[in-house]
Design a protein around this nucleic acid. Structure first.
Length: 277
DNA sequence: TTCCCGACAG
DNA sequence: CTGTCAGGAA
């Protein structure tokens, strides 16, 4: 891997940390070291702007202050509280993770990245960001913001892979200040070195939302959240007659994502669809 | 139009 | 490794 001059590291650390001291954003999840609270915030923050998460996070922590209360909830209520954040499967996975935490970890969110990786909804980034923000663990976590900063400030190639980025991130991490450092990087990336300003494209991009499969999925799920008894596929088909996609296929995917369940009604009464119990 | 403190399945 | 997942703000 490419060596980074110590002076460059000092420069970067000073620049980013200074900015943070002056202009750092204040968020409720930055005021706690509770690992569960941090886990909730980190999963909500996946692919979602921080400012839009604040209200949802506060409401969630009010209703589900610990893994036990979350595990005991109905999925329907979980999804109602999640509604507006997007990527509904994240909410379902978070609840499933709470269930595993109760069963296998005595109700305590594990602090080891390798254990966290085994939980649904927690991948390479989040498994590291949780110990970073909750426990100030001296490891590097690279998200889209941090990737962009490293590329711009250290003159890396935009094609630099995740492994090399991790090496670089580890090299510039100020020991003992992991939590502050990562928060600082987030804010520097979100407020100064924005994607628009730097022209650095994110690794993964998306097609337009309006009229997309995601758009129909979200509308169907929202309908089901309002209809306690569920809806038949007939009703759904009628409501979305304009849908260019195969509705049964969409429903099957929602079912695979563990968000809904489909039940064949007796006497060929069609198929009842409802939020998974 | 583009992107957001990514994860997961195919 | 590639496509897909939600929704709102800039």
């Amino acid at each position: 891997m490419k060596r980074i001059p110590p002076d460059d590291i000092d420069m970067l650390q000073h620049k980013v940390l200074s900015f943070y001291r002056e202009h750092g954003r204040v968020y409720p999840w930055r005021k706690t070291t509770d690992r569960y609270a941090v886990m909730v915030s980190e999963i909500m923050l996946q692919q979602t702007q921080a400012d839009r998460v604040v209200g949802k996070y506060l409401a969630w922590m009010e209703r589900y202050p610990d893994p036990a209360s979350l595990a005991a909830s109905s999925l329907k209520e979980v999804l109602c509280l999640w509604s507006g954040l997007g990527y509904n499967a994240r909410g379902e996975r978070l609840q499933r993770a709470a269930d595993i935490i109760l069963r296998d970890f005595d109700g305590q969110v594990p602090g080891d990245p390798e254990l966290l990786m085994t939980l649904p909804g927690i991948g390479p980034y989040t498994s590291r960001s949780i110990p970073v923000f909750a426990d100030n663990m001296d490891i590097a976590a690279v998200d889209t913001n941090i990737r962009r900063i490293l590329i711009v400030e250290l003159g890396l190639d935009e094609s630099t892979g995740p492994k090399q980025l991790m090496d670089v991130a580890r090299a510039v991490l100020p020991a003992g200040r992991s939590r502050e450092w990562h928060n600082a990087l987030m804010d520097y990336g979100a407020l100064v070195l924005t994607a628009r300003r730097t022209g650095i494209r994110p690794v993964t991009r998306q097609s337009r939302f309006e009229g997309s499969r995601r758009w129909y999925r979200s509308r169907i799920l929202r309908d089901l959240l309002e209809h306690d008894g569920g809806m038949t596929t007939e009703e759904i088909s009628a409501r979305y007659a304009d849908c260019p996609y195969d509705l049964d296929g969409l429903l099957d995917e929602l079912e695979k994502d563990r968000l809904i369940e489909q039940e064949a009604l007796p006497d060929d009464g069609g198929v009842m669809v409802r939020v998974r119990a």
